[in-house]
């Protein structure tokens, strides 16, 4: 899950990134300096949380993303003088006097919600269906072939694959093959 820092000042950007990194080393943090690229960057990186200064935030921006499905959560940086209409879109604000603890609280407030939403149940073991899919991937079948064989839609297989990758931390087909053999899901001939 990506966090985006949209801020013109190098010092502020670096400071926020530094604190985020200290709080969670694995957090992917992207930075943006140029307000013109704001919308495009959000569409591309799909951050779940955006820290943005007043230079980036205005009515027309929020209007333009109003109808997009996956809207990030916005945290304002030094937005004391911002218009109320824009302020209302912000979930939190930080400023120069904010501490590490403030940022930690914001992270906790939103990442927990996010984690629950994505992971749903606490299920890190593969389901029987997912094991079936791993087995077929290991045999070298394509998504389409697996779908036909298991009487599922290709779309469902894609979803299964995403979940498998998330649970196992293995992205490539040949990596899954190694996994399948080690766990005796298939035999080598």
């Amino acid at each position: 899950m990506v966090i985006l820092i949209a801020e013109k000042s190098d010092i502020t950007r670096t400071g926020i990134r530094y604190i985020l990194h200290e709080l969670d080393k694995n957090q992917i943090v992207k930075e943006l300096e140029n307000p013109e690229k704001f919308r495009r960057t959000i569409e591309k990186e799909k951050p779940f949380l955006v820290f943005a200064s007043a230079d980036f935030l205005n009515d027309s921006f929020f209007l333009s993303i109003k109808n997009s499905k996956e809207k990030p959560i916005f945290v304002g940086i030094n937005v004391d003088t911002i218009a109320l209409s824009v302020f209302n879109f912000l979930s939190e604000t930080i400023g120069f006097t904010s501490t590490k603890a403030d940022i930690l609280r914001i992270l906790q407030r939103f990442s927990v919600a996010q984690t629950k939403e994505i992971f749903g149940k606490n299920d890190n073991e593969l389901t029987t269906r997912e094991i079936d899919v791993v087995r077929e991937i290991a045999k070298g079948l394509t998504n389409k072939e697996i779908a036909d064989k298991l009487f599922l839609s290709t779309h469902t297989i894609v979803t299964h694959r995403k979940n498998i990758t998330r649970k196992l931390g293995i992205k490539t087909a040949s990596g899954l093959t190694v996994y399948a053999i080690i766990n005796n899901l298939i035999e080598i001939n």
């Binding site: 196992l168 040949s174 990596g175 190694v178 080690i182």
Partner: peptide, 16 residues
């Protein structure tokens, strides 16, 4: 880098 990433996880998590 994907394969490298996989190899790490296989070693960390799944090698007996």
């Amino acid at each position: 880098e994907e394969k490298l990433f996989d190899l790490k996880n296989i070693l960390i998590k799944y090698v007996p």
